[in-house]
Design a protein around this nucleic acid. Structure first.
Length: 206
DNA sequence: TGCCAGGCCCTCTTTAGGGCCTT
């Protein structure tokens, strides 16, 4: 298992709704694999949830029922994705959402994963307190992160989240003179009370 | 463009309520 904060898989789901407990399913998974901050691989697949998606989801994601009609079923795509994420920790923007869907989809096919999750949104809230809000698109603008203007598609959003993740690491490293950040440092940071963040990071400095 | 849920986080708090963020 990779333990470096710069060696992670950043992932993003598009889904039929907000809650797998209410019957929602994944319709697209996108992810980028990073080793030491360099993108070394990516994953993007549409998947057929077995029922029609709402017109709201078609409009929100640009993923239409026609596109999903010929896509492989969720079980097949998620089995392949379970192989892709082996050995890596995981990052997502509002990770609790993506974790719920990953857990629900993998439970359907009796697959598991060993990596741990952390959340770029929780850390961004602590680090960029002056941002207008902490939506992915807003943070991309606020931090002048390169983007191609595509939002709400899984690979595009995971690529932007990956750039945001590197910006987060770089901001911490330069502001606090920290050389090596581990993934567990970032997990702890995501759970540290805002007021205690500076003292926590100062303790990590050389 | 909205609702559904769930976890986090703030505050006029902790015997609670509501906004944020994800689709």
């Amino acid at each position: 298992m990779q333990t470096n904060a710069e060696s992670v898989i950043v992932l993003d789901f598009e889904t039929t709704g907000l809650s797998p407990n209410m019957g929602d399913r994944a319709i697209e998974i996108g992810a980028v694999k990073m080793d030491n901050g360099v993108v070394v691989d990516h994953f993007q697949k549409l998947m057929n949830p077995g029922f029609r998606v709402s017109s709201f989801i078609e409009g929100y994601t640009g993923i239409t029922n026609n596109m999903l009609r010929t896509a492989a079923p969720c079980d097949e795509v998620m089995d392949e994705f379970a192989d892709f994420i082996q050995g890596y920790n995981l990052v997502a923007h509002n990770a609790s959402f993506d974790q719920r869907f990953l857990d629900a989809e993998l439970a359907q096919i009796n697959r598991d994963y060993q990596g741990k999750f952390t959340c770029s949104m929780l850390i961004a809230r602590r680090l960029f307190q002056d941002a207008p809000n902490h939506k992915l698109g807003t943070l991309v603008d606020y931090l002048n992160i390169d983007n191609d203007g595509v939002f709400h598609r899984a690979l595009a959003d995971s690529e932007m989240t990956a750039k945001l993740w590197l910006e987060i690491l770089s901001t911490i490293q330069s502001n606090y003179q920290i050389n090596a950040l581990s993934f567990s440092h970032m997990q702890k940071l995501a759970k540290t009370a805002k007021a205690s963040v500076p003292s926590y990071l100062k303790k990590l400095a050389i």
